[in-house]
Design a binder for these strands. Structure first.
Lengths: 202, 202
DNA sequence: GTCTATAGGGAGATAGAC
DNA sequence: GTCTATCTCCCTATAGAC
């Protein structure tokens, strides 16, 4: 966090290697936590996957919860967790496109679904992350629906705040069903259908 | 399962006591699994709560996974998991009423949300339960929406199968958000708003 | 039916050699 | 940075006395 690039005291080679090492650990931890949850996955599982000892792993991440937070924040970095979008693209298209993309990375959906619910349990290190994530997402979609309402493109009677929470809820819930029965559920289709009910055509 | 009431070989007193004991264990396990998940909750936690030793607990339920299945099936018995409804009541009213009721039993919602997502992880004893539950719920709501469609009361363009999956998804997702921020989310309101978009007034 | 004792396996984290 | 060894703790399940 206090990285000062001005100081050349640290040698480049080892530093770059260490960064790669951290990334490979986070990748392995991502797989382990997605497949077994935070409580169900062990540091040994992660260490085995990355090919090092469990204690060496703790050299990079001082505790298991630190590793979890690194995984969650890295996930958001990669997939663009806040769903920021091209201002040219419509909300409907942006959501459908993101949903289609998500189908190509089932591991990410699984990680999200498993850890989000697990974070509700006692003393879970991921709770703040998910709580803040939901707040951020609700605000973001609230703004999007409010903008559409200003253009008269929201169906009369629809509340932007309720629609924001509902869109996120629908998205989460349909992902869970899709994980359990991929063939029986059309994620992008359900999201598109919902948005086409709420948003009036231009 | 093979209870034959015709055979009076088992004495009534002890049998009734044993039944009560099993119920109190299931109740305690319900709380533990809701608060800490299946993997995170221990048989010792349950035994402490019910006031007996961990080994005595295993006299009633031969393994931890047996206890989990007992909790899941008991939960459905109590709350009417399949959401069967009075044929006089409209779908909208039935859903809203159930959602309102659920707000009064947050522990049940928590159990459901936590264990459902956890069941996606490797070798989880609850997977079949939740998979079958979703299939059953989708069929049930599919029939309900199809019946409305036959009366011409489904908004044109709405697919009954997609609406069924979407309603369940919305319900699950909004419960998760409600668990994390009860004050910020109106569960019954979101469900009512969705159904009033999909179902046309009589 | 209830208990104590214990088997038998992991867990996360620390100490310290190299 | 990486390792082995180890600490301490907790888990599910079984054995067997009462």
């Amino acid at each position: 966090m206090t990285t000062t690039p001005a100081a050349p005291s640290t040698k480049r080679g080892p530093y770059a290697k260490s960064k790669q090492r951290r990334e490979s650990i986070v990748t392995a931890a991502h797989e382990v936590f997605a497949a077994r949850g935070y409580r169900g996955g062990s540091l040994q599982d992660v260490a085995d996957k990355v090919g090092m000892s469990q204690t060496s792993l703790l050299h990079y991440f001082p505790s298991k919860s630190d590793l979890l937070l690194a995984v969650l924040n890295w996930r958001d970095t990669v997939t663009g967790g806040g769903h920021p979008r091209d201002p040219e693209e419509s909300l409907v298209d942006a959501v459908v496109r993101q949903a289609r993309f998500n189908e190509t990375v089932p591991g990410v959906i699984e990680l999200y679904a498993v850890l989000c619910a697990e974070s509700i349990t006692d003393n879970h290190p991921g709770l703040d992350f998910f709580t803040e994530r939901y707040e951020r997402l609700r605000r973001s979609y609230f703004r999007a629906f409010s903008a559409l309402a200003d253009e008269g493109r929201l169906r009369p009677g629809v509340d932007p705040g309720q629609a924001a929470a509902s869109l996120i809820a629908l998205w989460d819930g349909i992902q869970t069903q899709w994980l359990m029965a991929p063939g029986d559920v059309d994620m992008a289709g359900c999201l598109r259908a919902y948005l086409e009910l709420v948003v009036l055509p231009e």
